[in-house]
Design a protein around this nucleic acid. Structure first.
Ligand code: MN
Ligand code: MN
Ligand code: ZN
Ligand code: ZN
Lengths: 124, 124
DNA sequence: ATTTAAAAGCGACTATGTCGCATTATTAGG
DNA sequence: CCTAATAATGCGACATAGTCGCTTTTAAAT
């Protein structure tokens, strides 16, 4: 299960890094220079998520968006921050704001997916 | 644009009410007694959302779940509460806990979609 | 160089959700 | 009660998202 370095991995990561925001598979495919198969892109993205390089956010359009992690590794992941999806420029960004919640006794939270939708700073 | 009363509307609403939790289109179709077309179910659900009868939640599986509203009408909707999706029993429920957030200046929030995923009280 | 297994390409497949159009049925008005 | 207007439904088609199995390619260890 040891990971290998491939041009595909580098290209995908570079596109997301340059964008500075979360991206969907189709957006990545659109921005990328080389031609990469759709299924492969998904596999690369999911592997990055497993490795704590990216994290996945489900937006209100039901699509998966992938964003760079900040301070995650394979075992410890903390993605309990809000995300913002702009309806104008269609971008999804990680907000610094943490998600604070208290839930009823007996519930076990394993994952948090919080997305605010509206108009972003730039588009206002 | 005046709404009409139909058996379909009643059946859909009754199923969701009886379930006491948010339901997806396929779950509704599975529980419903009469045979209703898939597209029709979606249209009924979306109309209920417009009318403030139901609200829509996007879960981590990317699917739409529809839950009864509590204190909404066509103009004022407040769905800023957390939702919980159990990975065991697959149900999605509204939590009473409100979502509190502060976002950077210039951002305009129009919608909130917060879903916690894990194991629910019953399944623990 | 050889080996081996991870990664990529390809095609097929399964949802999920939406839309246009023809048909049906609700309901208001006479 | 009948009729007309139009909301709602059924049906088929479509678009998109994501996954999977299988073969081929390729990175990297020996
Ligand atoms: Mn994030
Ligand atoms: Mn709710
Ligand atoms: Zn924007
Ligand atoms: Zn459960």
């Amino acid at each position: 299960m040891k990971r290998r370095n491939t041009p595909t991995k580098e290209a995908v990561l570079s596109v997301i890094t340059k964008a500075g925001q979360a991206m969907s598979q189709d957006a990545i495919e659109g921005e990328i220079s080389i031609d990469i198969n759709r299924a492969t892109i998904y596999r690369v993205l999911n592997r990055f998520c497993e490795d704590g390089v990216l994290h996945k956010v489900i937006a209100e359009d039901g699509k998966q968006y992938f964003a760079l992690c900040d301070g995650c590794d394979k075992t410890h992941q903390k993605h309990q921050h809000f995300h913002f999806k702009c309806t104008v420029c269609e971008t999804l960004e990680c907000l610094p704001n943490e998600v604070n919640f208290s839930i009823p006794r007996g519930y076990h939270v394993e994952n948090v997916n919080c997305v605010l939708t509206g108009v972003c700073k730039k588009c206002s």
